[in-house]
Amino acid sequence: MFARGAGVTLKVALLSAGVALLMSLLAGLGSGSRFAFVRAICRLYIQLFRAVSLLVLLFWMYFALPFAGIELSKLLSAVLAIGLNIGAYGAEIVRGSVAAVPKGQYEASIVLNLSQSQRLWRVVFPQAFVRMLPPMGNLMIELLKATSLIYFITLADLTYEAMILRNNYYIWTPYIFGMLLGIYFLLAACITMAIRILERKFTAWR
């Protein structure tokens, strides 16, 4: 039971992490764009999706949107809601890390006559990336925790399976929830470890 639930949790977590990372990259880099229009859109996205409550957003996407003619499957609404919400937080991390790269680096790349894309991808981003890793790791743990909310739209994730187990073996309730907490803790520990390894790898040149 737990294994099956863990599979669903991992699937939703990985897919929504993909959406979240993509959105944070787009909106994070976009909010430093030269074009005021792009900047405005990115700011709007970040402000809006940081201000909504994730659970309400999830309910709205799954239950209310079909009435507006947009029907999303459980999995798709879960992935979109979590991905868009976490992505807005991630965008702030990306924006902050890019802004923290010293100005001299920009000036140096202009002096070296690097093109715009070279400047971004060869000079600025690699330095910003290292700064992003620790807060992104924390954000991914938040994302993992957020996947437990898909229980509300009856996606059979870890939490959902635990509730079913609990209905069948009522007297074991404390052990079931204790184990559930333990599994989430282990999954989070894996994320922490992965980020640490990445960090070591990408700071090796220092």
């Binding site: 743990i141 929830f177 907490l181 989430y184």
Partner: peptide
């Protein structure tokens, strides 16, 4: 506490 979901803690 930080690395487990609030929802599960509430159930517990």
């Amino acid at each position: 506490i930080r690395s487990t979901p609030l929802l599960v803690q509430l159930f517990f």
